Amino acid sequence: MRSIHIRPATVADSAVIAMLLDALGYPVELDFLNRSIQRQLDHDDAVLLVAEVEQAVVGVISLHFIPQLALPGDFCRISYLCVSPEARGQGVGTALEEQAYQLAQERGCDRLEVHSHSRRLQAHRFYARQGYAESPKYWVKRVF
């Protein structure tokens, strides 16, 4: 099995991150993504990591740490987790999720959360294998 290396993302990773996001169904322009990555890198409560296999980026995870008002621990939200189609099933997603779990522990979080659209059945199976429990009812209001 090939070694998986997890490291902080940089703006220089934007082209491959754009391809990963596109594979997830989020096509994005590079200029916009460059600004988004930099904004996340500058944010104290955000972490952006990539997974490399043989020095090629094959996965990305975006994390946000959110303070809670009524409970003692913060929580960590996975906002994006994507593995290239060619690298799926090789432990890359698991390695990224395990790194997220470790960071959540280090920051005193009491849970990890992820929102995954109902059409993403493979993702649901992945999260279930990782120990996530479904928490139905997710409401969205668009801000224009």
Score class of each variant (00 low, 15 high):
76 C>A: 04
127 Y>L: 01
81 L>K: 00
26 Y>G: 10
83 V>P: 00
96 L>Q: 03
143 V>H: 12
134 E>I: 13
40 Q>H: 13
35 R>D: 12
130 Q>L: 01
100 A>Y: 02
99 Q>I: 15
57 V>R: 07
14 S>Y: 10
49 L>Y: 11
120 R>H: 02
87 A>S: 04
93 G>V: 02
6 I>E: 07
129 R>N: 03
9 A>W: 15
122 Q>S: 00
53 V>K: 00
70 A>D: 13
77 R>Y: 08
18 A>F: 11
51 A>E: 07
109 C>W: 07
13 D>E: 07
123 A>F: 04
56 A>I: 15
121 L>N: 07
80 Y>K: 11
6 I>N: 02
126 F>R: 00
11 V>A: 13
107 R>S: 14
104 A>M: 05
5 H>M: 14
65 F>W: 06
80 Y>V: 13
140 V>E: 14
24 L>F: 00
44 D>A: 15
69 L>G: 11
59 G>P: 03
52 E>D: 03
34 N>V: 15
73 G>Y: 03
141 K>E: 02
64 H>G: 05
8 P>G: 10
36 S>G: 13
55 Q>G: 03
83 V>T: 04
58 V>G: 05
53 V>T: 04
79 S>R: 12
112 L>Y: 00
139 W>Y: 08
89 G>N: 00
64 H>I: 12
79 S>V: 11
140 V>D: 15
3 S>G: 08
132 Y>L: 08
26 Y>K: 06
6 I>V: 15
71 L>D: 12
119 R>P: 05
87 A>Y: 06
20 L>V: 08
122 Q>H: 12
72 P>N: 05
63 L>D: 04
42 D>I: 15
57 V>L: 01
133 A>H: 08
27 P>K: 00
129 R>H: 08
20 L>R: 09
31 D>Q: 09
37 I>D: 01
141 K>Y: 09
63 L>R: 09
109 C>D: 03
74 D>P: 13
77 R>S: 10
67 P>G: 13
75 F>E: 06
88 R>L: 02
134 E>H: 10
99 Q>Y: 14
91 G>W: 03
28 V>Y: 03
60 V>H: 09
3 S>W: 13
17 I>T: 06
131 G>Y: 00
114 V>H: 01
98 E>C: 14
136 P>Y: 07
6 I>Q: 06
81 L>H: 03
106 E>W: 15
12 A>R: 14
56 A>P: 05
62 S>K: 03
25 G>E: 11
59 G>C: 03
66 I>A: 06
133 A>P: 15
